[in-house]
């Protein structure tokens, strides 16, 4: 066990491919938080993100022998997670069923307020607006924006994960931001925060 924890990702993946079950568990432990962060932002829905994450890890488990050694395991896992999310998004289109975005956002907002934030009310409100706006973005803009703007990946990292050119990541991000602008502009508070929230009849405490 101790040794497993010291092995690099690639070695773990190779051991997994040769039947070492512990190796894959270690990979999951190492990467699950980060992969969750990607999935929950891409999908905007913790339930969907949970399913996508599980799909992704199982798919990685089965497809480990197809890992190309020329990229990082982490990059490869990101790709699988994004694919799994994309798959979920399509299936949602197939069955545009149950809960509306409101339910989704409630969950997110509840989760948020559990955290220790100085001003949960306005912050979660802002987050909800961001999630609602993101949900309207087409996937090809949402993916790079989640990686670059939300999670702070470098453009070249996002490009490698998404397997497109860096310029493509930049232009998709740019178009995505332009598209988000009208729905987020009320959240801006360039000078005085109070001005902005009061637009929404805010109940902001000073």
């Amino acid at each position: 066990m101790d040794t497993v924890q010291e092995l690099p990702d690639k070695e773990l993946l190779s051991r997994h491919a040769h039947g070492d079950d512990q190796a894959f568990n270690e990979l999951v432990r190492r990467h699950r938080e980060r992969m969750w962060a990607v999935a929950v932002r891409v999908l905007g829905d913790p339930e969907e993100a949970s399913d996508a994450l599980q799909d992704a890890f199982l798919s990685a488990f089965r497809g480990a022998h197809r890992f190309r050694g020329d990229s990082q395991v982490s990059t490869w896992l990101h790709r699988i997670v994004i694919n799994a999310c994309h798959d979920r998004m399509r299936r949602k289109l197939v069955r545009p069923a149950v809960p509306t975005d409101d339910a989704t956002l409630d969950v997110l907002s509840n989760e948020r307020t559990k955290g220790t934030t100085p001003d949960p009310t306005s912050q979660s409100e802002a987050a909800m607006d961001v999630w609602a706006a993101l949900a309207d973005l087409p996937p090809e803009q949402r993916f790079p924006l989640v990686l670059v703007d939300m999670l702070g990946y470098r453009v070249d990292e996002a490009a490698e994960i998404l397997e497109v050119a860096s310029g493509t990541v930049k232009s998709r991000c740019a178009r995505g931001r332009a598209r988000l602008l009208p729905s987020l502009t009320h959240l801006r508070n360039p000078e005085d925060p109070r001005d902005v929230t009061s637009q929404r009849g805010g109940d902001r405490r000073s």
């Binding site: 699950r32 938080e33 962060a37 932002r41 949970s50 994450l53 999630w131 602008l181 502009t185």
Partner: peptide, 29 residues
């Protein structure tokens, strides 16, 4: 305003990985 869009995206918090989801994935694996 466009630069602020990036900032707002970066500030939008999302839930952490719930422990039960982590457990579920471990079980599935």
């Amino acid at each position: 305003a466009l630069a602020d869009v990036s900032r707002l995206l970066g500030e939008a918090a999302a839930p952490e990985l719930p422990p039960d989801v982590a457990a579920r994935i471990e079980e599935a694996v």
